[in-house]
Design a protein around this nucleic acid. Structure first.
Lengths: 191, 191
DNA sequence: CTATCATGTTAGTTCCTACTAACATAAGTT
DNA sequence: AACTTATGTTAGTAGGAACTAACATGATAG
């Protein structure tokens, strides 16, 4: 049933555990156990815990094509923002583990910061462009950069909310929340 | 210059380090050094690292009076939401360290979950009430609970944004972003 | 002055963790 | 059959971290 090769099994186990507990709190023995291999095999393949961490990071770090998010737009605020937001949520969600892993190991690997913060930065710049264009078209009047940042913040909020959803006693599901937020946002900036 | 008593010095150092690195990654020696005391003194006062962690949590956990946020409302959407949002941001900001500390030690202390998740839950319930009342007054039409959740998500997003602000290459400051978000939200749900 | 108290210092114990060496095994290849 | 390759097992080392015991010191209170 499990046809993964050894390295993948280890990398998968590593990313799961690192994202749950952070680098220091996870032991190589634990990773090996979850991966279903012996600890020795882990070291044979990855030499050190640090190296395993980096390999796991490299393997799972996302390289989304942000530009693709901004193709096929209809220049209808709510529709466009809905599409953009859903795609961004999807990217964040797919990379949940690596984001959490990074967050729990902050000062451990400052060199990874750049890799991860490239994305909100890039996303923001494309949003800038979108809102700028929308203002040129007369759909909105506010400062495009402020709008871009507000929309980014909203997106991060939705992501965090979906992460902690199970800890909260809410009835509304996240999808409803996402469309609600986008709808409100689109309506709120129109005119 | 530093008139803090020993226990406070240690607790302060502990919360800072735990929030930066998480429980496991911090050593008692490190805490003692930052506190400016000997490691022995730390153990004399707190007996164990675990106990120190719990004492730090207890000392710094916030007990905001959420009801106070909802007093003196003017039943003007933008004004009220601005006030509510600012206060909530303030609470989150003041308790940044303990939130981060908790986040980085997730499965280490599930018993603390309840303590921390009480707040978004409570905040959400009061928002429910506010939007319900606003609907009764005819100011809004949407489902109050969905609105409450959307507004909570927006608030969390603003908080996260302010946390990672220094890692992002944005020009807009967080205050502008907050008022922009609230303004958009208020306008977006009116009618 | 003396007793007390909080703190520092030093040395040490115990345990855990990253990591290694050496040998065993089992499957596949030639 | 002999060899290779990937893995497991067992035992072990080295270092670090939590935590302790015993003694030293310096300030304060009576």
């Amino acid at each position: 049933m499990c046809t993964l090769n050894t390295e993948d099994k280890i990398l998968n186990a590593a990313i799961v555990l690192f994202s749950q507990k952070g680098f220091t709190a996870v032991t190589t023995k634990e990773i090996a156990k979850v991966a279903g291999v012996s600890e020795m095999t882990l070291f044979r393949h990855f030499e050190s815990k640090q190296n395993l961490f980096e390999k796991a990071f490299d393997k799972f770090v996302f390289s989304p094509k942000f530009l693709a998010l901004f193709e096929g737009l209809e220049w209808d605020l709510e529709r466009d923002l809905n599409k953009i937001c859903s795609s961004y949520q999807d990217i964040l969600c797919k990379n949940q583990k690596i984001i959490l892993m990074h967050f729990k190991n902050e000062e451990l690997n400052p060199n990874f910061d750049a890799a991860l913060f490239r994305f909100p930065n890039e996303f923001k710049r494309l949003l800038d462009y979108y809102f700028e264009e929308m203002r040129n078209r007369g759909a909105i009047r506010e400062n495009p950069e402020t709008l871009a940042m507000s929309f980014l913040a909203t997106n991060l909020g939705l992501f965090i909310t979906s992460l902690v959803m199970n800890k909260l006693t809410f009835e509304t599901d996240i999808q409803t929340c996402i469309s609600s937020c986008v709808k409100i946002f689109a309506k709120g900036i129109t005119g």
